[in-house]
Simulated scan of single mutants.
Amino acid sequence: MTQPAPVHREDGELVGFVTESDGGWIAATVFGYPLSEHRSREDAEDALVGKGLSYLAERWALKRDDVWMRAELVEASPAHVTVQLVDMSYPDRYGERVELTAPVTEGLRLEH
C-alpha cells in the first residue's frame, strides 16, 4: 500500500486522501477512514471532490465497551478526529467526547 496522497478542492480545502491498494484506489476521509474503492486514482479523487466534506455531517457510530453507539463528528483533521456520543440509548454517555488518532480504520464506522 502506498502513502496516502492528499486531495484538495479547487479552493485548496483538503477533502481527503487517496491510496493505491491491490490494483485499485481507496478514497478516505481527512482522518483516514476508507469511504470507497475505485479503479483509478482519478475516480477516487473525483469521488472525494464531488462529496466534499459532507461525510462529516453524516451518521457515524463509535464502538465503546463492545457496543456501537451513535456519534457525531465534532472535529476532524489529518492528525485526529473528535466524536461526540449522541445515542439516547446510553444516557449516561450522551455528550461524551472521544478523540481518536488518525488514521482511523477501526472503532468508528459510517452508518448507511
Rank of each mutant, 00 (worst) to 15 (best):
L85Y: 05
S89K: 15
G32A: 11
M1I: 13
Q84P: 13
D11K: 08
P103C: 04
V74P: 01
L85S: 10
M88P: 07
L56V: 06
T19H: 05
M1D: 08
P6H: 06
L48W: 15
L35K: 02
R59G: 04
A5F: 10
A47R: 01
S54L: 09
D43M: 11
V7S: 02
R109I: 06
V49N: 08
M69P: 00
V7K: 03
V30F: 07
A57F: 02
E99Y: 09
W68F: 01
D92T: 12
A57S: 05
A102M: 04
P78T: 11
H112S: 14
E96C: 13
L73F: 01
A47D: 07
V18A: 02
H80A: 03
V30Q: 02
D46V: 10
V83P: 06
E58W: 10
P91M: 08
Y55G: 05
G52I: 02
A27R: 05
T19L: 10
V74F: 00
I26G: 01
Y90V: 10
P4F: 11
G23V: 08
W68C: 12
A71C: 07
T19R: 04
P4H: 11
S77V: 04
A27S: 09
P91R: 01
D43C: 06
R64H: 11
K51V: 13
L100C: 08
E20L: 09
L48R: 15
H112L: 13
M1T: 04
R70S: 15
H112G: 05
T82Q: 10
G24A: 00
V18S: 06
V7D: 04
R109M: 10
K51G: 14
Q3I: 12
V7C: 07
V30N: 05
L73G: 02
D65I: 13
E111Y: 09
V15W: 00
V98K: 06
L14K: 01
I26C: 02
A47C: 07
Y33N: 07
S40A: 12
V83D: 00
Y94I: 12
V98H: 01
D43I: 05
W68P: 04
G32T: 09
P91Y: 00
V83M: 02
S77K: 09
D22G: 05
D46I: 05
Q84S: 13
W68A: 03
T105Y: 07
E58I: 13
R9W: 08
G95E: 11
Y90T: 13
Y33Q: 06
R109Y: 14
H8G: 13
V74T: 08
R97V: 14
L100N: 10
S36G: 03
L14N: 00
P6Q: 10
W60Q: 03
E106N: 14
I26T: 06
P78D: 12
G95I: 05
A71Y: 12
E75L: 12
E72A: 03
S54R: 10
L100M: 02
L110D: 00
A61M: 09
P78G: 12
V81N: 14
T29C: 06
R39S: 09
A5Q: 15
L100H: 01
T82G: 02
L48S: 15
K63N: 11
Y94K: 03
G95K: 14
D66N: 10
M88A: 04
R41K: 14
K51F: 10
P103Q: 06
A5G: 13
R59N: 12
L56A: 08
S89T: 15
E20C: 09
Y90F: 12
W25T: 01
V49T: 09
A44G: 07
W25H: 02
A61T: 10
V30G: 06
